[in-house]
Design a protein around this nucleic acid. Structure first.
Length: 223
DNA sequence: CCAGACGTTGTT
DNA sequence: GTCTGG
DNA sequence: CCAGACGTTGTT
DNA sequence: GTCTGG
């Protein structure tokens, strides 16, 4: 990400191959003027939330870019609490109706890191009766590009490097102009092992292309 | 006005 | 905190 | 979204 | 089958 560390954070940030909602990830957050890298929980907690976190039943891990300025959970943070969510890939499940057709990883065709557009809050309260405080975030979504549309009818908003500053600092209207499908020609989709469906599975093999089923005569087994 | 919800994905 | 529904 | 639980009485 | 947790 071409970031320069301002403090020694060695050991605090490491690769995560299977992040799910309510888990923590590093983000680059702007408060409208200054930015900082922080660890944040994936699922934005509205600052006005007063009950125990366990009572929050509605989903806030994604935010539709088309309606973000008018939804009550997001219309505050979108004004000036925007962030970058770094990743090498994201996963989607493909399905035809109710029939599952496998898990896919989606990323850049050169496997480089990219940044998804997000919003964040800082919240203090309780989770399961115990004190809880920290940062949280949502990832914006938009219509898919032709490549990813084959797998899923939404995709995360991915930002071009030359738009990072505008996403973090520009007025809302200008920032939201950046919420469009990232070009197909820069991206790649590949099938991966269904293990990604279990958050307990977390190793670099999850990102590898799924091994093809071999015909019996190539397995090397004596039948 | 007050009370109650506050969301996405995908599914029907 | 702010919007929607009644 | 997927994975995993889904319950009560009474006990520690 | 449907809800909850992650």
């Amino acid at each position: 990400m071409d970031l320069t560390a301002t403090r020694d954070r060695q050991g605090e940030v490491r690769a995560n191959f299977n992040l799910g909602p309510m888990q923590k990830a590093p983000i680059i957050a702007s408060d409208g003027s200054k930015i900082r890298a922080v660890t944040a929980t994936w699922s934005l907690i509205p600052t006005w939330w007063k009950q125990d976190l366990e009572e929050k039943k509605f989903s806030t891990f994604n935010a539709k870019s088309e309606t973000i300025t008018t939804t009550r959970s997001f219309n505050g943070p979108i004004k000036s609490l925007r962030c970058l969510v770094p990743a090498q890939a994201y996963y989607e499940w493909k399905r035809e109706g109710k029939v599952k057709q496998g898990a896919f990883a989606i990323g850049m065709n050169d496997q480089s890191m990219f940044a998804m557009a997000g919003i964040w809050t800082y919240w203090k309260g309780t989770y399961k009766q115990k004190d809880w405080e920290g940062y949280s975030f949502s990832i914006l979504t938009c219509k898919p590009n032709p490549l990813t549309a084959d797998v899923h009818h939404r995709m995360p908003v991915i930002l071009h490097k030359d738009t990072y500053q505008d996403w973090l600092h520009a007025p809302v209207e200008q920032a939201l102009n950046l919420a469009s499908p990232y070009p197909s020609q820069n991206m790649d989709v590949w099938e991966v092992d269904g293990r990604v469906g279990k958050l307990s599975e977390n190793d670099e093999g999850l990102l590898a292309p799924k091994a093809e089923e071999k015909p019996d005569d190539e397995t090397g087994l004596l039948l």
